[in-house]
Design a protein around this nucleic acid. Structure first.
Length: 420
RNA sequence: GCGGGGGUCGCCUAGCCUGGUAGGGCGUGGGAUUGCUAAUCCCAUGUCCGCAAGGACCCGUGGGUUCAAAUCCCACUCCCCGCGCCA
């Protein structure tokens, strides 16, 4: 949600944002409904004012045992009038709210303009891509040969894009989670394991409702949705609260499974465990003051980079273009890891500053003193590790001539072995 | 799942039976005063509309009754206690 005052005073800025994001939005209708809404508030407030005054008079008369019947009649008509007006106001307010919840976030000036991923900008590369003196395999063949994944039976039981992890890959999955958690704990992040299902209100706070269908699973017969990332559950945890300024920034290391429909991804990454409906993730989530949020954003990016460096996985950092970026984000970096089996860099982490967009939807504010006007804080989120994709990178980049995989030094102690 | 008790403006609490402008304490900030510390007193401290003056809203949520609802009625929700079930 954006600041209504900004939209009112600066509609051209919003129009430009919509153009850059390549999004259809009835901005003029929205501005009109905001105006209507405010006019109605003034009208109903005035009527309520007279109603309150008369109510006091009735109370006075009753107290002194005077006859109040004529004045009560007056109240009756006012009450009826007010009821009608309130109905109209509710409708306008509803319309306004619905639209305001679908309006995407502002775009930071450093974001390259462009309609899709072809406009993304490479910021830097790190690490040398590995060279091999033998014919390499992709992660699908590797996991098959080593008995690490069973896709056929998963398809039988759950459908496409599900998997059974087996043997050492189960341990690798756990090792990455444990390593990631240790890594962030050392940086003073608070570990947090969230609910895996949250209600609609909470979900709407974190993402835009229209995106539900493509991304989020709904639990039948309940007001519950499976989280697509712990970000959804962490963002909403402080809903409707005022946080003490001195406790900011709040840095969380969220641990959770992630559930995603991956609708509309037909044909892409059909095989293997690269694009799946379910995986585990350690997520960085930060509640920050507006002044510090851009610094925090860079820090989070630095953390993911350091993590991948420790694993020894080559990567490049991409700054997403206006058209490729998610709607709640004002600026997003992707970390793309080198995947030898595919001979390309592939997205494994995403680092976003949402400014006050989520905070407004969730009414999360902060203030330094209690006599101070509370203001919306900023929220940021970044993957630290999403296990399945990182495992793909490890499998493909660290494969050996004998068909096995060596395990990065940093996580050997969690697995208790140096090869798979 | 059943029975009982509860949810009040940051925190604690009064008001609910008997409907008529939501009161007090704590905390926090500002000010006054006292030679310092302490104490005391005053003001501020939820949301929305408004340039402002001012006004409206706010008692878990949503309905209902009524001229009028924190208060009465109904439904839902969350918390606490007991029972049941259970990894």
């Amino acid at each position: 949600m954006l600041d209504p005052k900004l939209i009112r005073d600066n509609p051209e800025k919003i129009r430009e944002m919509l153009r850059l994001r390549n999004i259809d939005f009835p901005l003029d209708e929205f501005i009109k409904s905001d105006k209507e809404r405010r006019e109605l508030i003034i009208k109903t407030d005035e009527l309520r004012k007279t109603k309150n005054q008369i109510s006091i008079e009735i109370a006075k008369k009753k107290k002194s045992n005077e006859d109040a019947s004529s004045i009560i009649k007056q109240m009756q008509t006012i009450s009826q009038e007010l009821q009608k007006l309130e109905e109209i106001q509710l409708k306008t307010e509803d319309n306004y709210k619905k639209l305001s919840l679908t309006l995407p976030n502002l775009i930071h000036e450093s974001v390259p303009a462009g309609k899709d991923e072809t406009a993304n900008k490479e910021i830097r590369k790190s690490g040398n891509t590995p060279t091999f003196d033998f014919k390499i395999l992709d992660h699908i063949d590797l996991t098959q040969n080593l008995g690490l994944v069973d896709l056929e039976r998963a398809a039988k039981v759950s459908g496409a894009r599900f998997y059974y992890l087996k043997n050492q890959l189960v341990r690798l999955n756990q090792a990455l989670l444990q390593f990631a958690l240790d890594f962030l704990t050392e940086k003073n992040y608070t570990p947090i394991q969230t609910p895996y299902m949250i209600n609609r209100n909470a979900m709407e706070g974190a993402i835009i409702a229209r995106d539900f269908e493509d991304v989020i699973y709904k639990v039948e017969g309940e007001d519950l949705y499976l989280i697509g990332t712990s970000e959804h559950a962490i963002a909403s945890m402080y809903e409707d609260e005022i946080i003490e300024g001195k406790s900011l920034p709040l840095r969380y290391a969220g641990v959770s499974p992630c559930f995603r429909k991956e609708a509309g991804a037909h044909g892409r990454d059909q095989k293997g465990i690269f694009r799946v409906h379910q995986f585990e993730k350690v997520e960085q989530f930060v509640f920050s003051t507006p002044e510090e949020s851009w610094n925090e954003h860079e820090k989070m990016l630095h953390n993911v980079e350091e993590f991948y460096q420790k694993l020894g996985i080559p990567y490049r950092i991409m700054l997403l273009s206006s058209g490729d970026m998610g709607k709640v984000s004002a600026k997003t970096y992707d970390l793309e890891a080198w995947m030898a089996g595919q001979n390309s860099y592939r997205e494994v982490a995403s680092c976003s500053n949402c400014l006050d967009f989520q905070a407004r939807r969730l009414k999360i504010r902060f203030r330094n003193r209690t006599d101070e006007q509370p203001q919306y804080l900023h929220t940021l989120n970044s993957t630290l590790v999403a296990t399945t994709r990182t495992m793909v990178a490890i499998l493909e980049n660290f494969q050996t001539k004998d068909g096995h995989v060596s395990i990065p030094k940093a996580i050997q102690k969690y697995i208790g072995s140096s090869t798979i």
